[in-house]
Amino acid sequence: MNNAMIKRTTKRTEYWIFLVLIIMCVAIQIASGGQLLESSTVVTILRSMVVDGMFAMVCLIVMVSGGFDLSFPAVAALAYSLSTTICVNMGWSETNAWAGFIMAIVIGAVLGMLNGWIISNFKLNTMIVTLATQTLFIGISMGLLELKEITSKLPLGFRTFGESYLFEVKSSAGLRSTMTTMFIPFVIICIITSLVLNRTMFGRALYAIGGNETSAERAGYNVKRVKFWLYVAVGATCGFIGMVRVCMARQSIPKALVGQEMTIIPAVILGGASIFGGEGTVFGTICAVGIITVVSNSMLLIGIDSYWQDFFNGIVILVGVTVSAIQAKRRNK
């Protein structure tokens, strides 16, 4: 029995991704002469994982259900730019950030509703629907609402919230690094995602639908309803993540997230989510985001030109998709 458990663990993608992450960290640590595991570098890397990590959770939960969401950066961008613009136009320069957060979440949920309604009612391919709505949302933001960049006028509440931190570390060379408060929502979103996926019937429904939609329907799940609420929840979460990004960057740029999906989705696939649905875990996804962040942050440490980052991302997509396809093939045999 124990043997069987070990066998099962080693079969899982998360296990291998975790190993890769560890081996890579060790390798970079040696190559960079011990710079990677400096407290300030570690904190910097964790900080840069926050936004990508949260987006990865959103992406994961959609992929588990057998879908593909290309619109999440556009949803987040429209939600935060509209929300901050309203805050600025209302003259709430001194308000707390929470008003902005609530508005962004509501806007995100409404946009998600559109996605969910189209996908569940017309049974269309999620990738095509979200590709269309992505363009639509960017169009609304740039053309219809003419949302502008907000930098210096950003409400003070957003700024202070973004600058707040949990603790501060100093490296041996005297470099200071702060751990942002935004790390807490990141951890909370990961925990919630994990609980939803593993401990709720809704989460099991996502796995079931991703595995075999017809069977899920026959088993008694209301597939249409599950899908609808999935996209609403995803939209709302995107609105929230977008606001976290605004606070951390201390600016709201409507076009800032365009193309972000193309780095997040490969990471999620690398983390063990299947492109055919039904597979994927929070742990694996975090490890994969970790790998990508560690590499892009430590390229300079070991003296590699940062242009190589795209090259590396390309490799990640290839490896992730290939592994995913091979696994699906084995499963169907």
Binding site: N212, T214, G278, R331
Partner: peptide
Amino acid sequence: DLSIFPNLTVMENLAIN
């Protein structure tokens, strides 16, 4: 087609319905 979920465990397949 047996209406099973290939990505879930035997236990989950048995109990989910």
